[in-house]
Design a protein around this nucleic acid. Structure first.
Lengths: 346, 346
DNA sequence: CTGTTAGCGCATTCAT
DNA sequence: ATGAATGCGCTAACAG
């Protein structure tokens, strides 16, 4: 039977209200009584029941983070940033694995609301997510990150996906590659669409046309499967850009299996800049997102709209290219076998 | 202004209690009124406030998971298992990064309790964790995983660390290695001690004495630093066992830098079986823990003691060796330069 | 089977 | 500066 505010009041010879004031640092308490109450709190080892106070204040000090899969290094980095920032602002953080399941997302959202969670960060939104749009309309405090929903009037923190993809494209072009391909994530993910657009545009600007392949998922296996298809093509692309690091690692595995040297026969560029990219063999050239910073920013936006009623804001961070060992100069014969431009164009 | 149970009662022409009964699937409700109430609930879009009910029932349906670092692949796998199992049992999961900070652990524990979290899973405990021991004494529902506290009377789910380490040792011995070393984690981590004991015992059983080095942390950098020291020794060990995969990857990096071929000049064995181990170059031979299963089991034990008041149980799972490409036969000259036994003994 | 009555532990008026 | 009273939204006896 834990002790309550009432026990403290009686023991200290004051009323409930006074104890409550001390707890909430109200300025209207005489210094002497404040000290007496605090001493009593210490002595009794009183711990306020935050549930009860939440019932009054409508604030639980809890945020939630929805991710597709916490064991994906990108999202566990995100989780780190979110949890860290949340903790510094006095919030705890509920983490939910939603997968790609829209209904699961809705179910979680509903439960979290009923449990009084103060706000939700979505890293799971589909391109045209109805739920997110609706929550935005109702003014429920949410923040989008990593995956945008263009139609929603809510907070969001993103990277400049087109720019990042263009960095990758230009990098490969500068290395002399002419037969370029990209493996994208499923179309429901807005940022992957953007990366595709950015890549295509940059490649076309060089007078070439990239081969575009859409993976059936976002993990290593999906990258592996997509690249098997791609590597069987003749002529085979010499430079492949992947919408994330996991896909790129799948390509590395397929390449190794096919006896292709990376970067000798094939250059591979990823996107995200996860630890996995550094550990991969060879270490991945990748477009680095400031992942932890994105997590922190997401919390900041959310807490801001929570505490100050700030209206929805949009933060776009800039990615950068990190050169690994998975990309290198196009081999001499690669371009020689074919005309210089419009390699894949009819 | 969200609608309350009272609105539903009035609208449906019944009392609060009846609505509450319908909500909690009480059998003592006439079918017709149950339907009428449910219809009203639907129509009004009523969502029960779980905070208010938690105030009565003392159950929030929230668990917490304390990890040193969620961005460490081992712990993000753990988090996946925990969250998944928790969700299936109707619990949400608060995740907290506590680092190696004992005070942070205590602070989190305190806040979580005040917020009414039903139980806590510790993956952060130090060998002689006072906090955990005390919580155990007070009967507070907690479960230890991955890191044991021998003195605590609480639930725990572990792997057989000694056995796992012995697997690694025997693997290296079978490959003909005679000069063996191990890099362990900091001593506060009980499982690392156990792995050290298991490794040492198995190596000694072969009439040899391993070189033991303690890393100054648990991450790639710590492994890198520890192995630099180790690889500078003469004679250099030809087989290194690491207490976790991250340390092992640090060794791989140091070896590559020193121009040592793995497994030609040096065999490396890790522990954990994370995705990182598969992606590493070369793919790591490692002692695989059933990580997700451990997470699920931890939840099971916790929820069991929560719902049925089960007394503390102990589950020990068995690890297995996964052969990668980071371990191979000892090179012929390696053993030749030295006497066969007690290579490093005085 | 259903309604009435009390709280759960705290914050917040309103008096004083 | 402090205390008394009221209610947050719900569950849990206890009656009937």
């Amino acid at each position: 039977m834990p002790i309550t505010i009432y026990d403290v009041a009686r023991e200290a010879g004051v009323s409930l209200a006074t104890v409550s004031r001390v707890l909430n640092n109200s300025p209207h308490v005489k210094e002497s009584t404040r000290l007496r109450v605090q001493e009593t709190i210490e002595r009794l080892g009183y711990e306020p029941n935050l549930l009860a106070s939440a019932l009054m204040t409508k604030r639980t000090g809890m945020l939630a983070l929805l991710v597709p899969d916490i064991s994906n290094p990108f999202f566990s980095e995100v989780a780190w940033g979110v949890e860290d920032a949340a903790a510094k602002l006095g919030y705890n953080c509920v983490i939910c694995n939603v997968g790609d399941d829209t209904r699961k997302q809705a179910a979680y959202t509903s439960v979290l609301r009923r449990k009084g969670i103060d706000g939700i960060i979505f890293a799971t939104a589909a391109h045209d997510d109805r739920l997110v749009v609706n929550l935005g309309k109702r003014g429920y405090p949410i923040t989008l990150m990593a995956r945008d929903v263009p139609a929603a009037a809510v907070n969001r923190v993103l990277v400049d996906d087109r720019f990042g993809a263009a960095l990758a494209a230009r990098h490969l072009l500068e290395l002399g590659h002419r037969r370029l391909a990209m493996i994208s994530e499923p179309a429901r993910i807005h940022s992957s669409r953007e990366r595709s657009r950015g890549f295509t545009a940059a490649v076309r600007a060089a007078g070439l046309e990239p081969v575009m392949v859409q993976a059936d998922g976002s993990d290593i296996g999906a990258g592996y499967r997509a690249s098997r298809e791609l590597l069987a093509k003749a002529p085979r692309p010499t430079g492949i850009f992947c919408a994330n690091d996991l896909l790129a690692i799948g390509v590395l595995q397929a390449a190794a299996e096919a006896g292709l040297k990376v970067p000798g026969d094939l250059s591979v560029v990823g996107f995200d800049g996860t630890t996995l990219a550094q550990v991969a063999s060879p270490p991945l050239t990748t477009v680095v997102q400031p992942i932890r910073q994105m997590g922190q920013t997401a919390v900041q936006l959310l807490v801001d709209s929570l505490q100050n009623g700030t209206s929805p804001r949009r933060v776009v961070l800039e990615p950068s290219l990190k050169r690994g060992a998975s990309s290198g100069p196009a081999s001499g014969d690669a371009g020689a076998r074919l005309p210089r431009d419009r390699v894949f164009a009819p």
